[in-house]
Simulated assay, not measured.
Amino acid sequence: MHTIRVWDLPTRVFHWLLAASVIGLIVTGSVGGNWMNWHLRLGYAVLALLLFRLVWGFIGGHWSRFARFIYAPSSLAAYLRGRGRLEHQVGHTPLGALSVFALLLILLVQVGTGLISDDEISFFGPLVRFVSGETVSLATGYHKDIGKLIIIVLLALHVLAIAYYKWVKKQGLVRSMVIGDKQVPVAVPNARDTAGSRLLALVVLGLCAAAVTWLVSLGNAF
């Protein structure tokens, strides 16, 4: 067995911040009232995190890059038959990769519709004024009902998958996402996780946060 660094620190911090923020969004959106102020703030935070992950998917650590977990249909089929290559079980597996891309896409759509949603009471997204009333109505309906349900289902499936790997396949996915290291039966590259790469991640996150701030201020300026 080989102990390698699979998840760099920026990827791990992103993962746990996103998980906490999404749970917070579900709770604050369900409670409503004054908690909607926090719902908006958490929505902006999630958008900044998603933008960061999109960038980090190209310049991040070895196993965090999209190129490392974009699999051919044949690789997915082999994995489902239990004949997948050992290196495909180091980072995101072929099945896990589908879950990651689905969650990123659904969250982007959810945040995007939130920016143009209006509850017709006291809260509305900062970009409402840039789209038609019909678009606002469609976005609001999706954001409050369909999108929220899809996210809850995906989160439940994610938790079930973690439990399956823990109790059936005897693989602790949570531990590796906490400490970054994982024991694997094949010699593979370590993820880059240096002080320089962490500083780069901080700069990227700052730029993403600045972009979201500008986007929100653009809507509030009119």
Rank of each mutant, 00 (worst) to 15 (best):
F130E: 09
V22I: 13
S99V: 13
G24D: 03
C208G: 05
F52M: 12
V184K: 10
V159P: 01
L98G: 09
W35C: 02
A187D: 09
V46R: 01
N34E: 12
P94T: 01
A211G: 09
W7F: 10
G29D: 12
Y164E: 04
K170V: 02
L50N: 01
K166C: 00
I152Y: 01
L205W: 05
S75R: 15
F58H: 13
G61L: 14
G32W: 00
K144W: 06
L115W: 08
E134R: 15
I23F: 07
F69W: 11
V168E: 04
L205E: 00
Y71K: 12
F58I: 05
V100A: 14
F222P: 10
H143I: 04
L103Q: 14
S117V: 07
M36N: 08
R5E: 01
L160M: 10
R41D: 07
G114W: 00
T135A: 09
I121N: 09
V131I: 10
A77C: 02
N37T: 06
L215D: 01
A191S: 15
D181P: 00
S197Q: 15
L42W: 06
V55Q: 03
L173P: 02
L17C: 13
V184W: 04
H92R: 10
I106H: 05
K148F: 06
V31F: 04
L76C: 11
H15F: 13
G196V: 08
R53Q: 13
G57D: 05
S21D: 05
L138S: 10
G112L: 08
G33I: 05
T93Y: 00
V131C: 06
L95M: 14
K169E: 12
I150D: 01
S122T: 11
I146A: 10
G141S: 08
H39A: 02
A210L: 11
L127Q: 07
H39S: 06
N34V: 12
W63R: 02
Y79M: 13
S75W: 04
K169L: 14
C208H: 03
L105V: 09
Q89G: 10
W38G: 13
D119M: 12
L207D: 00
V203K: 06
G112K: 03
P126I: 07
L18I: 14
Y164T: 11
I59G: 05
T140A: 09
L115Q: 00
L51R: 09
K170F: 11
F58D: 04
